[in-house]
Design a binder for these strands. Sequence first.
DNA 1: CATGAATGAGTGTTCATTCAT
DNA 2: TATGAATGAACACTCATTCAT
Lengths: 222, 222, 222, 222
Amino acid sequence: MPRVVDHEARRRELAEAAWRAIVKYGLDGTTTRLIAKESGYSNGVLAHYFESKDEILLEALRISHDGIDKRIRAAVEDKIGLDALRTFCIEVLPVAEQPVRETHLEMSMWSRALVNDELRSVQRSESSRWRRLMERLIIDAQRSGELAEMPPRTIAVLLSAVIDGLSIYALLYPDRFGKAELIEFLDDFFDTVKAGGVEPVTKTLAASADGARPRTGSRRRK
Amino acid sequence: MPRVVDHEARRRELAEAAWRAIVKYGLDGTTTRLIAKESGYSNGVLAHYFESKDEILLEALRISHDGIDKRIRAAVEDKIGLDALRTFCIEVLPVAEQPVRETHLEMSMWSRALVNDELRSVQRSESSRWRRLMERLIIDAQRSGELAEMPPRTIAVLLSAVIDGLSIYALLYPDRFGKAELIEFLDDFFDTVKAGGVEPVTKTLAASADGARPRTGSRRRK
Amino acid sequence: MPRVVDHEARRRELAEAAWRAIVKYGLDGTTTRLIAKESGYSNGVLAHYFESKDEILLEALRISHDGIDKRIRAAVEDKIGLDALRTFCIEVLPVAEQPVRETHLEMSMWSRALVNDELRSVQRSESSRWRRLMERLIIDAQRSGELAEMPPRTIAVLLSAVIDGLSIYALLYPDRFGKAELIEFLDDFFDTVKAGGVEPVTKTLAASADGARPRTGSRRRK
Amino acid sequence: MPRVVDHEARRRELAEAAWRAIVKYGLDGTTTRLIAKESGYSNGVLAHYFESKDEILLEALRISHDGIDKRIRAAVEDKIGLDALRTFCIEVLPVAEQPVRETHLEMSMWSRALVNDELRSVQRSESSRWRRLMERLIIDAQRSGELAEMPPRTIAVLLSAVIDGLSIYALLYPDRFGKAELIEFLDDFFDTVKAGGVEPVTKTLAASADGARPRTGSRRRK
DNA sequence: CATGAATGAGTGTTCATTCAT
DNA sequence: TATGAATGAACACTCATTCAT
């Protein structure tokens, strides 16, 4: 009887060690030996589970994507309309430890994706997947009159771009873009695409329409 | 008299070769030998002008930033209000060869900046500089009633984020985010932060105020 | 009672797998994993039957030698004189699949034998064994007047050398040294050592100068 | 002014170090680090002069072949007939230090050549070259009546085979095949192909049955 | 006995850096 | 100053071997 090892679990274990190493030391600083060390196994073990270093990194990316996916779907499940959309975004923004790690991994890969076709196509397919989910939520929010009547794809692209942009700032300049600020900026963006727009004039009615939501567009700064 | 060599010019020449190499082969594929080859000099020459490879890369980044700066200022100079702001954005978006190269370089550096303090601080200072310029233009546009009365910093951050996000998409998925689409999405964003908001139907008068602007909210979708 | 496994049979099975691997992938390309795969067993099984990889290779060589031995003896059994000698040679020359495999294995080992005492001594003992058998057959052929009266060892060494040389050519340059050519060249060699020699007619006197002694001390000049 | 190095000379120096390493430690034991050490340089130098280890080994082989070629031609230059042919053979046989090293290298390569097309083709072309030279010398010797009238190619192939076979024995079993023995066996072979053959006197009729043609097509094959 | 996971030294190769010319 | 040869540590990957199951 052979030593019993769950091959898939071990693969995952190693890929997660790779992910940790990337977050700690950067993608360039992540050598196969370091991945092995991080995993607690010897360097030779990698060969049993992966064809190459690139394959490990891709697997780490897949695991990250799967995790994001599951978390998003669970978070959004019992929500509807703009609330669901906002929840989606907050799950993706690097405001908690896990999405910070996910964003770190993703950004690390962008540099390589620029010159690596396979990597780029993996990122593209995930990117599309999320934008589709986003569009569905946007359409819902529009139906309930919570979002302006722009084309859903337009809102989805802008929202994605805002999220990606903010994510970069959060990771590169964490002192300037903290958890609270990120969410505020997200909400600022939502304000601009809400039905009724940003523009109050007298602000009273529009603001009161916010209802449950804790914040108003004018809340911040004089 | 010793041979006169313009030290700064040579430095720049080498750093630009590094930049070209990064765009061609990726940051990982950019070895010092490749930089030397790209520059037309021998590999040994690098040591005369730079302490290390990292310094070359930093210099390339500085040169890129300087170029962006000059181009932006020249483009914006004789414009005012929203027009100036929009021009600024279009100069930065990767819609022409030069900004594509700049974005490529910038993205390549992000991965390293995550774990490299010096690199990160260089990027941070440039990032701040542009946001300040942006804020000035935003304030101008608000004064002329072209932009909604959100806090300028808020608009600046969101606009920056949109631009960075769209830039990423343009470089990673050029087939889906071509030159025209980028500008359309930029304008879509402007629509959301314009005085009067995105809202049509009952907003006919406000919309008609758009007047001079070449595009309408309904322009897309066949 | 413990499970009964024919230890020797399994050893042989594994060594033959090694042999096949060597012929397919070369000695350098033959890893222990490849041997295991070729055998149909797991890589770990090798340790139960061999102390080391070297031992497997030695066993493969022994098996090859044993096979050659048996085949030769069977082929020669009911033959006599030059016919027996020629049969011996043809069994050894790489003209059929099996001797090709044997020659391949042998040649693969030469490189290592040059710096590996144990391997060399295995090859030496086999080499001697065959030369002794050859000498016996040569003496027979001489007795029946089919071979010239050179010292049997001389003929044996030359014949061995011719066979080994031709074998190399056959394996390295199979398009130039096909099955038929090999045997022709062998027979050409036999012609030269046959009683009567290659030589005709008018050379009687010159030949007679050679005298009764099969070879003269003056033949070689210093 | 750059450091002046004769690139070709350094290449040769390194290839010769590789050759020495192969003779000392075997082809398998010859790592690039060992080659570097043997050369007296650091391991990194190899990359300046060779694309890969294989290229170093091929260069070593080429150098060996060139050396053999020059030595042979010089030795044969002022000789004629059988004397020239014999000189040729003695230059090639591993009876002096240099041909021993050449033979060692050659044998080491055989194993790889079996599964390496490029290596095999290099060996083949050299092999052919020498056989052609050999044939020319054989024809000369036949014209002067010193060699039997067999087809020159036949003699060349047999002689080559004898030399290669003897060379193997000399390297693998140096105690049994010393310098003197090798030359004796070579001369024994020459005896068999000399005009007049090995055989005297009483065999005239049998010999004459062979007819004018040195060998008959029907002699072989039953 | 058989398995295959695990090991870790070793491989060929790369590359930023140094430095004699 | 410019060259390119030289360095040696580091890299991803390989593989004979060990060993728990």
